[in-house]
Simulated assay, not measured.
Amino acid sequence: MSLTKRVQQWATFARTWHIYDCTWQNPFESAKVIKSHLMGLHKPIYHPMNDCGDHVVVINTKEIALPGDEWIKRVYFHHTGYPGGASWTLAWQLHEKDKTMVMKKAVYNSMDGNLQRRHTMQRLHLFADDQVPKEILDNVTSQIRQLRQVPQRLDHIDKETLESFPAIMDYPKDYILR
């Protein structure tokens, strides 16, 4: 086997580490993209019985954006296994308790029907903010593109850029703003 083919084969079978930023992203759409990397669906050697998925590091899960009024309408079910142990928790309450749990449940539910789902979830690394341990960041080799572009806030733009931006109209000097 030639050297280039050997490197290509090694790169195909190796577990790579990806990073994904959840800032202003819909967790259910993001879960589909994360699932494909966790399960190895993006690799040419994928087979349902083959465990060839990669690691995914998800940052800024505290800044996810649910569409519409999903924060107050989406309910998560949990059962302790004991009689009377059923409980339902609203999405905003779950997010207040644990900033990573909504994203974790979205990824877990997106892998419906996967027999190795519990083992696949061990390769998912969730962080509420962008503070990731150095030993994990050293492994990351690629970045998964965000599905939705994050707009820049006006209070984060410097003053020179705002003043040099072309004005739509010039108000007269005697104009009074109400």
Rank of each mutant, 00 (worst) to 15 (best):
D98H: 02
V58T: 06
L126I: 02
G81F: 07
A128S: 14
C52D: 07
K104Y: 12
L94D: 02
M111W: 08
W88F: 14
T89G: 01
G53F: 03
R148P: 00
K5V: 03
F77R: 14
M39G: 00
L38I: 02
L124N: 04
R148D: 08
P83I: 12
Q146N: 11
E63H: 12
M101Q: 11
I168P: 00
M101I: 12
A167S: 15
I34C: 05
L126D: 03
L126V: 03
R145A: 13
S87A: 10
V7P: 00
T16C: 03
H37M: 08
H95P: 02
Y82M: 05
R118T: 11
S110N: 14
T23G: 03
T4D: 14
Y82I: 02
F13A: 14
R123T: 05
W17V: 02
Q143T: 15
K134I: 04
I144W: 02
Q116D: 14
I144P: 04
V7I: 14
F165E: 14
Y76D: 01
H125F: 12
T120I: 15
Q122E: 15
F28E: 13
L94C: 04
P151H: 09
G40S: 07
T100V: 08
A14E: 14
D155M: 00
H119E: 15
K104C: 04
M49Y: 13
L90D: 01
Y20E: 01
K62F: 03
Y46K: 04
G40Y: 05
